[in-house]
Computed example of a mutant assay.
Amino acid sequence: MTETSALEQITATTNNIPANVEVDNSYENDSSYGDELSSYSASLRSSVLEYRHENGRRYHKFRDGSYLLPNDESENDRLDMTHELCLLMLQRKLYLAPIKNPQRVIDLGTGTGIWAIDFADQHPEAEVIGCDLSPIQPTLVPPNLKFLVDDIESEWAYEKHPFDFIHARNLLCSIKDFEKLIKQCYRSIKPGGWVEFQDWDGYPYSQDGSLEDTGLQKYFSEVYGAFEEAGYEARPGPKLEQWFEDAGFVNVHVEKFAVPLGVWPKDRHLKKVGTWMRAQAEAGYEGAALAALTRFKNWTKEEVIVLASQARADSRNRKIHSIYDFYVVYGQRPEN
């Protein structure tokens, strides 16, 4: 094997992105994928507390307005679908960092708590904390798991009781200062401990130009533009490596995955990934756009619904070959 071919092999393994995702041009009945999605029923129910209600959706009340996506049952179901999507991409792994015998673990922005529940089940010896703005997690959980209502962008108080492993996933459009957050992780992780962030470059692209001038492209331009104008980070994935290194982490490792939107890929695995991606995306188009566009851009609810409908239709169009990049980045605090 030549030096060049060896390098190409390493790059392909690390990035998980083919040079070109081949389109499946043959007719295929996609009902099997719909059946698979409909069978996924593990949704976690919200606590009955006071919340903000707006445009027919429910939002968190603690630190009102700091998180712009809903926290109602429809959104919680979408978050659980996203959990399954991530497991599918990572070959059923909850994390990629080489942690060993973790004793104290925290999941930042835990959402429905599904990742923390799975981790606590897999590591009964660990004390696991799930932290979120919304108390939407279930009460029947593993005995080694507890949930806290807190704002992870506020100052932490964990330095005196540091963690062996800190995990965060899907924080795009919910964090304004990732650099500060990752530095807080560094201060709150034990020497030798690991921090892992899994996140997106929120803007899709196409390898063949089929996304250009579509309703889907307009949707992300408008919605993520509103988030960014409000100070939120919409594409943290490709920036995580530099943020980790700037914070002082060593042994920083990056895995990058190509995630198609829809059933258009020919490859069976990518078709399945794309099915789950489309399901969670369609469930979230309105919820992701409503608060950002109505609060900051003076859109009406009806205008948002039309924009989301256009994005949903394009998601089902097999002639539009959208791809997202998903990043898993982990690093270690030096032993010394």
Rank of each mutant, 00 (worst) to 15 (best):
G202E: 14
L307H: 05
K176L: 05
F249D: 06
G284I: 00
Q280K: 13
E73F: 09
T110N: 07
S46L: 12
K190E: 08
A258F: 02
W156M: 05
Q91C: 09
E179C: 11
E179F: 03
A313Y: 02
E335G: 02
L44S: 07
L240M: 06
A291T: 08
G215L: 08
Q280S: 14
R78D: 02
V328E: 06
K319V: 05
N76A: 04
Q137C: 12
Y40I: 15
E286F: 13
Y158K: 06
N55V: 04
L68Q: 10
I99A: 05
W200S: 06
L44V: 05
Y51P: 00
P18I: 00
G215I: 06
E196T: 05
N20H: 15
I136E: 04
T112I: 08
A279R: 13
T2P: 00
Y330I: 04
A42G: 00
V23H: 14
F296Y: 15
V195W: 01
N144L: 02
P162V: 10
K93Q: 15
L108R: 04
A311M: 10
N29P: 00
I320E: 09
A226V: 07
R235V: 06
L96G: 02
Y59V: 08
D208A: 13
P124V: 10
P70V: 00
D213F: 13
L96T: 02
Y232Q: 06
R104C: 08
F257I: 05
I136Q: 07
L44R: 15
N25Y: 11
E222R: 14
V105I: 11
C86D: 00
F326Q: 00
R333N: 02
N251T: 02
P102K: 00
W264R: 14
S221K: 15
N251R: 13
N336H: 10
E3R: 13
L7I: 12
R104S: 12
N25I: 05
H60F: 05
Q217H: 12
E36D: 08
E153K: 01
F244K: 02
H83I: 01
W194I: 08
G237R: 06
S31A: 12
L37C: 04
M89E: 13
V105T: 08
T300D: 04
F147E: 03
K297H: 13
R92C: 08
L90T: 09
T13A: 14
N298V: 00
R63F: 01
K271C: 11
F227R: 11
A116I: 01
N29W: 03
